[in-house]
Amino acid sequence: MQSSEQSSEQSGGQRSEWAGRSVVVTGAASGIGRATALKFAAAGARVLVADLDGGGAEKVVRDVERGGGTALAVVGDLSDPQVVDAVVERAVAAFGGPDVLVNNAGIMDRMSALGETDDAEWERVLRVNLTAPFLLTRAVLPHMLAAGHGSIVFTASEAGLRGGAAGAAYTAAKHGVVGLVKNLAVMYRKQGIRANAVAPGPTRTRIHVDADPQAHGPALISPLIGANIGRLGSAEEQAAAIVFLASDAAAFVNGAVLPVDDGWAAV
């Protein structure tokens, strides 16, 4: 990725690599997305905050602006192609083509085993967690290709690395994200595009799991998770990994899925 001509002075008189660059972060009203948007903005990036939660998204924008940064919000359901188009059009109009896309927005399933998963749970979880980032990445790619550079970071999950970390729908969606990352890395590396993912372990966020503890899936999975996880992570720790993968320091990192999980993936 290349820096724009806009400058931003950091401590010690050094210019941040993020000065003037454009970053789109989805699911940015809270949790990992919020922490990521704030971290990019603090480093000098111009950030588009995309989320279904309008009040939360606007609060993140205000927080960025109070810190002297630049941000704007687009509100809507990113599984809706019209919202996807609005995000990209707004980012291009305000900041130019995005240098970085962070596909972070997601929802949990009910920890349902396949036999307990109804059509509504399956379709909604796949739509938000896999189809929405596909749609947004497809919409952003022409702008990155025209610029000759771009970094795309996905929030995958431990559930994308194993079979016992979530229900059938969420597990399938996050495995799909991992496959999408690897395919993007191969398909577009010669055009200067990198695609990577973080795979968070349990992290303190507002994401909600509406599970019936007596159902087969939750009853089986809960002991597996409890026996193998380390400490709970923070949204800021996940954000640090996301910003690293997007940065010039990771210029030779492409197609990687980085567990950020206190060693859970190593168990």
Rank of each mutant, 00 (worst) to 15 (best):
A93D: 14
V153I: 05
A240Y: 03
T205G: 04
G27H: 12
H143S: 13
V253L: 13
W264C: 00
V198W: 03
N228T: 15
V88E: 01
M187A: 15
A93R: 13
D99I: 09
S8E: 04
T171K: 11
P133H: 05
L184I: 08
L141H: 03
D77H: 13
P81C: 07
P98E: 13
G255T: 12
A50H: 02
S11K: 07
I107Q: 11
V100N: 06
S4A: 09
G69T: 07
A168F: 11
A91V: 10
L130H: 06
S11W: 13
L135K: 05
R62Q: 14
T131W: 11
A249F: 07
A132Y: 00
V186K: 14
K190M: 09
E89I: 01
A35Q: 03
A251Q: 13
M111R: 02
A211E: 07
L130Q: 05
A251F: 06
W122C: 04
V49T: 00
S157I: 03
T205M: 05
G106R: 09
A19K: 10
S157P: 02
L52H: 07
D99G: 05
G106Q: 09
I225L: 15
G56F: 06
A156G: 10
P259G: 03
A173N: 02
R15K: 11
S7W: 07
V253D: 11
S22P: 02
A139K: 14
L126C: 00
N228R: 15
H208D: 10
D262R: 06
S112H: 11
A37F: 03
N254Q: 02
N254S: 14
E58V: 01
E236G: 08
